[in-house]
Design a protein around this nucleic acid. Structure first.
Length: 504
RNA sequence: GGUCCUGUGGCCGAGUGGCUAGGCAGAGCUCUGCAAAAGCUCCCACAGCGGUUCGAAUCCGCUCGGGACCUCCA
């Protein structure tokens, strides 16, 4: 089998993945800021890295997946009046800050479960790691890479760049930026007088009196800077050097760049080996984001309750939609695209259901009757692993699955002889589809029809309809079918006279 | 302004220089009491203009368009 290769933003190449500790992987993914409701754009990294997580485990690794909750509230750092987002909104909604944070944390967890994302192994909060952050900042000051100014602490980017360029790790290594260029082109911003240099970033901010969220520190009351929490928490739970650091592309600069600088000063090593970044979800070609005022919240998406939505889209449809493209490509949202995903997923899932219901054959077929087809099926299945190993090409795996759909349905409908494929191939097909669809892609049946009573009722109706049809009483048979269709249950006449149903 | 990405058929999207991904939609057919579902077949696109090459969607150049980051952002 091929080796796993991942695209490393740090080297801008696809590299063979090798874990630091054999058999084990440490993965850190930047989690949500729980000052508001999650939107479709947020869903992408968490679904993307859920699949990475699942696939790494599928490969046999023991993975410690750490994803933080940012609940300390970032400030609008430069150019605007310093304000803690969370404390400001708390005043508006007349809630305690921690109450607000809890509310959105719960909502976030709810959404993650809707998407069938596995829980991370550790989900540390920024507020729970203030001490660790302070300790880290102190260390950076002692080492001479940060300075205190008016109760705040700033990281000295220029000094870092000068010293670490010599070690082959200049500031900007991750995002491909050159500090000198940035100094020339960065816009003039207000409130910069505390900083020695405009590229410097805050490690700790002095809290103005109106801030509700504040902590004691050696530099007075304040709150941690934007980037330090991830550095502190990743080092605490994964060590100074860990395997994978993930997040959205918009975090590459400055967030991850700053993490690298801080962590390297503290721990004398580049924190992560592989930096993975997912691309953005766009809407009408524009990034979905707060700044653009074009977000679709997840609750709106699931309920269809938004002017831009023609209908509700279920969590699995969104998951499938995201899987249909490579994680490093932008993905454009539209009703048409989501509806196409909905239909495509339905067809794929029904084929998968048919496949799992294949009746066991009495005898084993060692040799396939249709050698060509047997070969083709095995080739398509084998490629699943190759595609995933090639930087998680879920889109290609799905394409292969769709090529298998006609084979699966053909056998079920008996267009294709049940002995066309060898027993071994059938078993491989069943096992691999299950592994990939359920275990790795994390898709699941959304129909809540595994209810014995409902099934019993439907079987009764099906039997009545069968009798009616046998008597050519099409008035009755059509009535049953049409009225069930009206309430969203579709009856399908099968070729062999049987009937099946699906709930929309 | 700086850095970078990108432009694929009606729509969404894979694409490592040669072997026409896939999905959705559309057309025809098969099956069927009818319908749906399913199956089969069709629909050979790569922004434009040059160049490299035996051969380019894929490499290079230019032009035009779109976007991201540089500021909170997944």
């Amino acid at each position: 089998m091929s080796q796993l290769k991942v695209y490393n933003s740090l080297t801008r190449t696809k590299e063979v993945f090798q874990s630091i500790t054999p058999g084990r992987i440490g993965m850190y993914v930047c989690g949500p800021t729980v000052s508001g409701e999650s939107h479709l754009g947020h869903a992408r990294p968490f679904i993307t890295f859920d699949i990475v997580y699942r696939y790494l485990m599928h490969l046999g690794y023991k993975v410690r997946y750490v994803r933080n909750i940012t609940d300390a509230g970032h400030f609008e750092e430069e150019g605007r009046e310093a304000e803690d987002k969370i404390s400001k909104k708390a005043v508006l909604e007349k809630l305690q800050p921690m109450e607000l944070v809890q509310k959105y944390t719960n909502l976030f967890h709810w959404a993650m479960h809707q998407f069938n994302n596995l829980d991370p192994a550790i989900e540390p909060t920024a507020t729970g790691h203030i001490i660790e952050q302070i300790v880290m900042i102190e260390k950076i000051i002692v080492d001479g890479y940060a300075y205190v100014s008016n109760g705040s602490v700033y990281f000295d980017v220029e000094k870092y760049n000068t010293d670490f360029s010599k070690l082959g790790q200049p500031y900007g290594i991750l995002s491909g930026r050159v500090l000198d260029d940035m100094l020339e082109t960065t816009r003039e911003l207000d409130n910069q007088e505390e900083k020695r240099n405009k590229a410097d970033f805050a490690l700790w901010k002095n809290a103005p009196p109106e801030h509700i969220m504040r902590w004691q520190s050696p530099w007075g009351e304040g709150f941690p800077g934007w980037h330090i929490e991830c550095s502190a928490m990743s080092a605490k739970y994964l060590g100074s050097e860990f395997d994978i650091h993930g997040g959205g592309m918009d975090l590459q600069f400055p967030h991850h760049e700053c993490e690298i600088a801080q962590s390297t000063v503290c721990n004398h090593i580049m924190p992560a080996r592989y930096w993975l970044h997912n691309n953005m979800i766009t809407i009408n070609g524009k990034k979905m984001g707060k700044s653009y005022n074009n977000v679709i919240k997840l609750t709106e998406l699931f309920s269809g309750n938004s002017p831009v939505l023609e209908q509700a889209y279920s969590p699995m449809v969104i998951r499938f939609f995201i899987l249909q493209t490579h994680y490093r490509s932008t993905l454009d949202f539209s009703n048409e695209a989501l509806q196409a995903s909905e239909r495509g997923l339905k067809r794929l899932w029904e084929a998968y259901n048919n496949l799992s219901k294949y009746e066991a054959r009495g005898t084993k077929y060692e040799v396939a009757d249709d050698v060509e087809l047997d070969k083709k099926v095995n080739a398509l299945l084998d490629e699943f692993d190759d595609f995933m190993n090639d930087d998680f090409s879920t889109a290609k795996v799905l394409a292969n699955m769709f090529e298998l759909v006609p084979v699966i349905n053909g056998i079920k409908d008996k267009h294709i002889s049940p002995t066309a494929l060898s027993s071994k191939t059938i078993e491989a097909l069943q096992a691999k589809m299950k592994t990939y669809l359920e275990d790795i892609f994390g898709l699941k049946d959304e129909q809540e029809t595994n209810d014995n009573k409902l099934d019993g009722v439907l079987q009764l109706l099906i039997n009545i309809r069968k009798d009616a049809r046998a008597k050519k009483d099409y008035l009755t048979s059509d009535k049953i079918r049409n009225e069930l269709a009206n309430i969203g249950i579709q009856l399908k006449d099968e070729k062999d006279g049987n009937m099946s149903y699906s709930v929309a």
